[in-house]
């Protein structure tokens, strides 16, 4: 497996829709937020159909809530399955987190304790989702600002067990590792070493902000040097992956993101020379 066989893409955001519809943007794929397109019809669905005619599309969700103690929402799975059938996506992913419980939806990626009970629940939900979608999912490591005294294992041990139990793949957000390592005081290299790295299929690169006490996963800044360094470390260990810049706010002009993607390509290329 060589770095040159990896794919390099971008998260497709509203200010750049016209570029992806009308131009040959030099990317191998785009990723979209699934929920933005899980609507009945209209312009957004049309845009997605037309972009899909030009490029592979990864569906990245924020609302499946695999860590919910009250179960998955069947109507959510039905809508996502319909989108999957229409798009035939490169990947379908969501986060290791919870967003909702019965009667309440936070619309935020909230942390879970890494306990045996939570592992049972998340594993059951990932299996349920994979059955409903008819394909394996990728689960993304979250960034977090709260740890739990109840946790019985590390996040990477939890993810490794989840992969083993469900057959899911991993979406590794390098910035999230960096942010959580800073906030919780663990070694990011130990995190990477503890993952079943051969199951990483996709990589997110993003930036963050410095809060008063914590690093905040804002995804509104360029990828900073420490995240690039960690990415280089990861790329020496993974197989063929799909790498992308994930910018969610403070969206810059498309050429700025493409320049960042060129850096990602170059650093992946270093692996060949190493």
């Amino acid at each position: 497996m060589t770095a040159s066989s990896s794919l390099f893409g971008l998260g497709m955001r509203t200010p750049h829709y016209a570029h992806f519809l009308d131009e040959d943007v030099p990317v191998d794929f785009v990723e979209v937020i699934s929920e933005n397109f899980m609507v009945a019809g209209g312009k957004l669905r049309d845009i997605l159909r037309r972009v899909r005619e030009r490029l592979p599309v990864a569906l990245h969700g924020v609302s499946m809530s695999v860590g919910s103690a009250t179960g998955l929402d069947p109507s959510y799975l039905d809508r996502l399955r319909a989108l999957v059938d229409e798009v035939d996506p490169l990947f379908v992913s969501d986060h290791l987190c919870w967003t909702r419980v019965a009667g309440f939806s936070s619309h935020d990626l909230l942390p879970i304790p890494y306990t045996a009970e939570a592992l049972d629940i998340v594993s059951a939900h990932v299996r349920q989702a994979q059955d409903a979608l008819g394909r394996a999912m990728l689960i993304e490591n979250p960034s977090s600002y709260v740890g739990f005294a109840q946790s019985e294992m590390s996040e990477w041990e939890f993810l490794a067990a989840l992969v083993e139990r469900t057959g899911c793949g991993l979406l590794l957000d390098v910035n999230n590792i960096y942010v959580s390592a800073h906030n919780h005081g663990f070694d990011p290299l130990a995190y990477v070493a503890g993952l079943p790295i051969e199951h990483v299929r996709q990589i997110h690169l993003a930036g963050h902000s410095q809060g008063e006490h914590l690093l905040i996963d804002t995804h509104d800044q360029p990828v900073p040097d420490p995240v690039w360094a960690l990415y280089r470390h990861v790329m020496r260990r993974v197989g063929r992956v799909a790498v992308m810049i994930e910018r969610d706010d403070n969206i810059p002009p498309l050429p700025d993101l493409l320049a960042e993607l060129d850096v990602a390509r170059a650093l992946a290329g270093e692996r060949l020379a190493a």
Partner: peptide
């Protein structure tokens, strides 16, 4: 009951 620290305010 969740725990101390500044993270809860972020959420």
């Amino acid at each position: 009951r969740i725990g101390d620290g500044p993270g809860l305010a972020v959420y």
